[in-house]
Each structure stands twice: as C-alpha cells, then as structure tokens.
Design a protein around this nucleic acid. Structure first.
Lengths: 352, 352
DNA sequence: CTCATTTGAGAAAAGGTTTTCTCAACCCGG
DNA sequence: CCGGGTTGAGAAAACCTTTTCTCAAATGAG
C-alpha cells in the first residue's frame, strides 16, 4: 500500500538488512507489536497479525540472531575443537555431532587446533567471546589430550573420542569389546591359532585390544605361541613384514590374524596372497576401524571392527544439548560398543 | 582494594559472566571509560587506564562478542557449506580456508548439507540469521552444484572446489594443467606409449584431463593406439581390469600409464606386479590427487599430481576477507595450478 | 448509564558494548 | 584576572529484538 516502490523481492540485496523497525513502520505499528505478531505472542486482531506478517515477508525480514542471542543469553552455537582435521577418525565423529545439533537449530564452529597450544588457546578464547553454549572436544587418539585445558571455563564441555579431563563427561569407543568381537568371531568359525598384528605400544588401544585378544583365547583354552603377537607401525608395510615373520620361520603357523587396523590387514592380506596362501580358506583376517575405502577394495573385502564413531558423535552432541538445557549429567567415561562388519576375509559364518 | 573477597581467579565459574559494567563499578568509573581503557581509546591518565585493566583482569572480564558484533555490524564469522564431510577433497580445502581465516580472527561455521536441498536451505537460513560476514561453498566435484542457491543473499560468496553460479567468484584446480604435468613428465623420461586409465565420463575432469593427455601426445608426435584410453569406476578394481585389457590383448603395450586417481594407480601397479611387469622399469605409472595414504604405501610409492587443495582453500579464504572488507574483486573462475609429486613409480628423472 | 473487565496495542527496559558529545576542571599566555 | 585551549571522564545514543508494563478504548453486566 506504500505506492509503487519496488518491494525488492528477489532483487539486488539491500545495503542494510531490513530490521523489525522497518517492518513495524511499513505496517504502521510499533516494533513491540511487530515482534509479537511474528512470534505468535501477545494479543492483537488476527487481521493485524497477518498484515504484519505479510509486510515482513514482502520486505524479506530476517530477525537478527545476534540481538536475539544477546537478549536470550543463548547463542545456539557450539564450538567443536579437534586436532584431527585431516584424519578419518574425527570426521565421522564430527558428522554425528553436527547431525545431532542441526536438528536443535544449533550451529557448529569447527576449530582445528593441530597440536599447537597457542592455536588451542586462541580458538577457545574466540569461542568464549562468541558466547558458545558449549564446547565439544574431539581428537584422533583416545590417550592424548588436546593441547588446551578446558576445565572451569564456565560453559558445558563434552569429550568425544579424545582423552578427557578428570571429572568430565566423555564418550569413547570400547576397544576391548571390539577386539573380543573379532577374536570370538574367529573362534566361532573354528579358527584355533589366532595371531594379532597391531600398531605401536605407545597407543593405549594397542594394549586394550591385545589384552582382550589374550583373554578370549584363554577363555577358550587356546594358547598364544611365541611370535603370535606383533607390534609395529600402523602401515601396510608392517603388515607385509608381519606375515613374513609369522610364516617365514619354523614354528607354528596361524590360521587367523586379527589386525589392529585396516591398513595392516590390507598389507597382511596382500602378503598372504603373494605367499600363495588363500584368504580366507588358509588364513582368516579381520581388520579394525572399518575404513570403507580400504576394507572394501581389499581382495577379498575385509571383515572389520567398526567403532560406530558417528553414533558416538551423535551421543556427544545430544548430551551437550542436555547440559546446555541445564539438565544434570553424571560425569564419567561412557564406552560405546563396536560392531563387527562381516565381509569376506574370514570365511563363512558357522551356519553357512 | 575491595577487601578480602576472593577474586575468583581460577575458581568456580561465575553463574553470570562478568560484564563491562561490573568492571566499571569495581574500578569506580563509567562503562564508557572502562571500554576506552580496555580498547586503548579515548583520553585518560595512564593510572586510570592501568587500574581499569587490572580490575578487568582480576575479574576475568571477557567482552561479549554478540554485543560487539551487533554494534559493529560484523560478526567475525563465516559459513562454510560443503557436501563432502567425509571425503578427502574438501578436507584440505577446509583446512586451507580455516588457516586463512583464523589469522584474521574469524571463526568458521561448518555446515554439511549432503545433497539435501532442505538441509542446505536450513543451514543457509541459520547462517544469515547469525549474520555471517560471508559464505564459502565447497564440494567434492567441480561439476556439481551444491543443493542450494546462493545468489542475491546480501553477503559475499566464494566458491571453492565446487561448481560456481554464473558471475560469481570461484577457485578450482587446473586439471588440464595437472594432466599436462604428468604426461610431459613421462615424455621427458623417454616414455612413448602412454595410456590413460581414468574414471567415469560423467565427470567433467575426466574429459579435461583426457583432452590434455591427447594434446601433449599430439604435440610430441606420439599416437594414441586403440584401447589406450580406458574409462571406468574410480576404484582399484578397475585399475586391475584396465591392466588386464591393456596387456592381455594382441596389440601394442604401453610403457607408461597415467591414471585418473591414486586408487586406480594403486590397482594398476598391483596388477602390473602380478603380471610380472616391473614398475617403473617396464611400465611407469602416475596417479592423480596425491592421496598420501595411498600413494606412499603403494609399492613402489606413487608419483602423483597434487591439486594443492589447501592452497586453493587459503586463496578462497583470503579473497572472502577482501570482499568482507568491501574491496572489489573481479568475478570469474580462477584455476590454480597443480604440482607433480615425484616418488618412485615412473623412473629416474632424465638427469639421474 | 455506570463500573468492572477484557482487548488491542504501544512505551520502555533489558541485553553488553562502542562512540560521539558534552562538560567541568585545569593550564597558560596575555 | 580573563579567555582560549587542553585534559579527563561521563552521559547518552546506537545496534536489534523481546518482554513486561501500562493504558486507552471497547465491551458487558447490572
């Protein structure tokens, strides 16, 4: 009704964004009324309400989230701190986190801190200034801290797939349970001489998985011949070396190899084939991590333990939301179960 | 000087964050003076300034970024839209972007839109409400749009490694130049029968690289025998199949294979070895993408074309900052050069 | 017709900071 | 002693929205 002026619908972006005041003036009401009309609050005639809404729509009004956040003392924003931007662990975790938060209308600041305390401090400062509602710390190893301390910051913190501070809330994978899954799968298929090829002993998970491997073997009365445990680098190359050792010497030969990750397993499978040993007929192989792109392209495709990282991230995100809403959450470390993804590298299941 | 009350340094987080007003009251000045003291603005005695600063430090004052952003009409925040959270392309791009922006004190909202227009719309709305200073669109393919249109939003937009809208500013890799690097490297090493094993023809880059491959061969008077061009899936498996075709038939055999990605190259190298052909002595192989974890573990390690994605991301980030600062930037698509990372899969350089 | 109640809508404060103005006090040259 | 300039600091507006009051007009009961 303001004459012929172009409403701007779909046209060049306005220099200055349209504010609630603009809407109010255009509709001939006060900003208070305009606000209430758009938020379904207060009392007014239905006609007034629809008129204001129509004006807002026509002007392309979009409420300023900064002003809203300032007033509500809640920014609908969380910070995600990680030292593993490139890696394949934190990515599924992050995806799970985002997924959980998006549904609540919460946006995520992604901050990569590498292993640089200065960078970590910088990012944390920035997050706090931007008044994030909470922070999630994620990483690439369960036994290493991020290079920054998050205690006593005044905002809720959740740890997901990284070493937590004492007394905090954390979600991690249950590596021992995952290892049990693998070894018990071998046992169920009738394998009896099960070796374990894994990464460096500086990794906590290496010990956890090895302990579970030994435990399952013991429970089934199976022994661990000398040399059936091999620790080295997390690489295909070491997979090859391990096979050379395991099958090159005079001693007993394994009929199954549980590997600490999929790259090792890939190396092991390739090395076995090159020695003329058939996978899974002569030797069964199981990997860890279920890194699709490696596991699926191995010949034969790898059976592997999946850490359900995406679900882990989702749990972390949902829990953070609870904290932000003021709900109390018991501190402690939650271990989330792994699952076994069966492909073709260890033979038919017992019923086959 | 306020007596014995615990200053709270390092203690339990205060329920309510301390504001500038708190600082001003504690220091016995007005908020205006307090603000100026902390920002090195205005005029006051050095004593006043240091006193206020000391009080602010003691109270753990941290300015509220929301209030600052509201006033400055600048949130020091940008949105990063991608449909490739898991993939390996957008990750280096993202890392480069973050790196460029962190130094300017700008935080990044990471938003994964998959290929879901609804999710895309949702994220864009959220970004605009949160008053991002700009948006960067990234993806996993140069020839596919994100599932959301970004024109006329009223904020600066940059496209990085994804199909741009017409008239916009975009950064992409120069795939033709990258392919030339590879083929010319082969030619310089004396290879004469250079095959090309690549991905599906639904990818634009497949055409660009193939055209460059043909062009370089033509420039050097080298022919392209029938069957020297093979298009299939982007998988190791197809690499094997391609080798079977290339070397199984009666025709001329290549002495070099330029592969469309590192997985293909890995499959090709493995297949060659299995046929008893030596890499690089009998056949040279070059990959594309320089995916470290594949290229370095291949036996022998792969020479590969690197798209410099991290640098590409950095350029995109810096350019967005220019736009945000109001500087004019010529629209258009900038192709950034690739580089060849030489490992051991195609023999000694000529001078060796 | 009067009084109490409901209805529709606006004024103003709040959220935390920055910046422009204003103003009193002081200094100094004339 | 006077007037112009400087200095130190505060008042107030601005950023944009939400929410609580407040208030006049309209309505209904008696």
């Amino acid at each position: 009704m303001t004459g012929s002026a172009d409403s701007g619908e779909g046209r060049l972006p306005a220099r200055r964004p349209v504010t609630l005041r603009d809407v109010a003036e255009a509709a001939g009401v006060s900003v208070a009324t305009a606000s209430k009309a758009l938020n379904d609050q207060g009392r007014m005639t239905a006609e007034t309400r629809t008129r204001i809404r129509e004006v807002a729509r026509r002007l392309g009004f979009r409420p300023n989230g900064l002003a809203q956040s300032l007033l509500r003392r809640r920014s609908f924003t969380v910070g995600l701190l990680t030292n593993d931007t490139y890696g394949r662990f934190s990515l599924p975790v992050m995806a799970g986190i985002s997924e959980a938060l998006v549904d609540a209308g919460v946006s995520v600041f992604l901050c990569n801190v590498e292993d640089d305390p200065r960078l970590g401090q910088l990012h944390v400062e920035a997050m706090l200034e931007k008044r994030v509602d909470g922070i999630i710390a994620s990483g690439k190893r369960l036994d290493r801290h991020l290079p920054v301390t998050l205690a006593g910051l005044g905002v809720p913190i959740i740890y997901a797939f990284t070493e937590p501070d004492p007394g905090s809330i954390a979600f991690v994978s249950d590596d021992a349970q995952g290892a049990r899954l693998a070894v018990e799968h071998f046992v169920a298929l009738g394998r009896r001489r099960i070796a374990h090829v894994t990464g460096p002993e500086s990794f906590m998970v290496v010990h956890q998985r090895a302990a579970a491997w030994r435990a399952v073997l013991a429970e089934h009365g199976l022994g661990v011949p000398d040399g059936f445990y091999m620790s080295g680098r997390w690489s295909e190359r070491f997979g090859h070396e391990a096979v050379a050792q395991l099958f090159g010497g005079p001693g007993e030969k394994p009929d199954a190899i549980f590997c600490g990750n999929d790259q090792l397993a890939r190396g092991v499978v390739d090395a076995l084939r090159e020695r003329g040993l058939a996978v899974p007929d002569d030797v069964g192989v199981i990997g860890f991590d279920n890194w699709e792109i490696v596991a699926a392209e191995t010949r034969p495709p790898l059976t592997s333990v999946d850490m359900n990282l995406s679900a882990l991230g989702r749990e972390a995100g949902l829990t953070l939301l609870s904290l932000v809403d003021g709900k109390a959450v018991e501190p402690g470390i939650r271990k989330l179960p792994c699952r076994l993804v069966v492909r073709q590298s260890c033979g038919r299941p017992p019923d086959g």
